[in-house]
Design a binder for these strands. Structure first.
Length: 229
DNA sequence: GCGACAG
DNA sequence: ATCTTGTCGC
């Protein structure tokens, strides 16, 4: 899980890379085991553009208990600006760095963002799946450019996430009466299982434990890197 | 051409 | 993402 030497630095190069990677995406591939002992990884990144510093975190949870079994961080330089549709090029270098520090290989990685639900069908989660070869799933907090009917009010209710007529993911209610999360498959997983995993990771909050844990960890890592004023 | 736009 | 206070509610 290392960053290629020819990592794109311009929007043009990044879009060209997405065109090249597209055939490798396998959203309906074989499903990994989701039994007790299965390891689910969560990754997230925090930025200090002012100082050009980025901190990534990777947490490993036991799927059955949701206990943290391992957690690592990586700090580096910001490699790419934020451009809608090209988030992977901004987040992945640091994420790959953090993942490489885990001593165990995750059975599934959950991303804070999209997978298939992407203008060119290659969001952050898809991109990470292609690079690592591991199953990935994207769980986002906003609908991005997609549309959806509000899902039912109960936890577990969901509705299709649409790009025009095409279903690219699901809006899933993880807490009764609370705004849904927006999930899409990344690599080697299908929507039904992605939905089940999402619900398993949200026993008490809207966002999955993987994202919550990784988010707080990378923020702490960033704060520890930047000297207080 | 002008907005909108995962994080 | 990040900047930011108090406030309502379980």
């Amino acid at each position: 899980m290392t960053v290629p030497a020819d990592w794109p630095t311009t929007a043009e190069a990044a879009r060209a890379e997405q065109e090249r990677l597209r055939p490798l995406v396998v959203p309906e591939g074989p499903e990994p085991p989701r039994r007790p002992g299965t390891l689910i990884a969560g990754v997230d990144v925090a930025y200090d553009d002012e100082r050009d510093v980025v901190a990534a975190a990777a947490v490993l949870l036991d799927y059955a208990t949701l206990d943290v079994v391992e957690q690592v961080t990586a700090v580096g330089r910001v490699a790419f600006p934020y451009l809608p549709g090209l988030l992977a090029f901004r987040e992945l270098p640091a994420v790959l760095d953090a993942l490489s520090r885990l001593t165990r290989t995750p059975d599934l990685i959950v991303c804070d963002g999209y997978g298939l639900a992407h203008p060119r069908r290659l969001g952050l989660a898809s991109h990470l799946g292609v690079h690592t070869g591991l199953p990935t799933l994207g769980i986002a907090k906003t609908p991005f450019t997609f549309t959806h009917e509000p899902p039912g009010d109960r936890r577990g209710d969901w509705s299709p996430l649409l790009d025009g007529p095409e279903t690219v993911g699901r809006a899933v209610r993880t807490r009764q009466g609370v705004k849904p999360v927006f999930l899409s498959v990344g690599h080697r997983i299908g929507l039904p299982e992605a939905t089940a995993v999402t619900l398993a990771l949200t026993p008490s909050y809207r966002l999955p434990e993987t994202t919550r844990r990784a988010d707080s960890l990378c923020r702490r890592a960033l704060a520890a890197t930047v000297p207080a004023p």
